[in-house]
Amino acid sequence: MTTTLKVGDALPDLKIGRITRTTLALFAGGSGDHNEIHLDSDVARGAGMEDVFAQGMLGMAHLSRLLTDHFPQSSLRSFSTRFAAITPVSAEPTCFGEVVAVDHHPDGDLLTLDLRVELPDGTVTLAGKATLQIGSAS
């Protein structure tokens, strides 16, 4: 099996919608990350932040949705991100992905994507990469 994607192709943008305090609370419960700085404004302000802000892993989970919306999860080989800026509460991020390499292999094409999450003001909150083996059996 091969992919029809080529270098420079972009995945359709994934708009996430507003990150509310409820979003942060649900993600704390779902992910198991109960770090108070994302949940309790008093703790956040005590640490010198303006307010609570999103868990970095929430942004990475949003990027994973961009991937699994277009590829079977079993094709995902590696996935990495750098947390470049915080995502303030009430932000409305968008996830972007672009093909940067396609390597043809007998056991499936290896696809490399550049990924990022951006806020409407252009701030990049997460920047990363994923490699996928298209047509792999496992």
Binding site: A47, Q55, G56, M60, S78, F79, S80, R82, F83, S138
Partner: peptide, 17 residues
């Protein structure tokens, strides 16, 4: 102190689901 801690980067290498 936990409030002084930030997540810098994260990567995953997958073997199977």
């Amino acid at each position: 102190d936990m409030p002084s801690v930030l997540h810098g980067s994260q990567s995953f290498d997958y073997t199977t689901m």
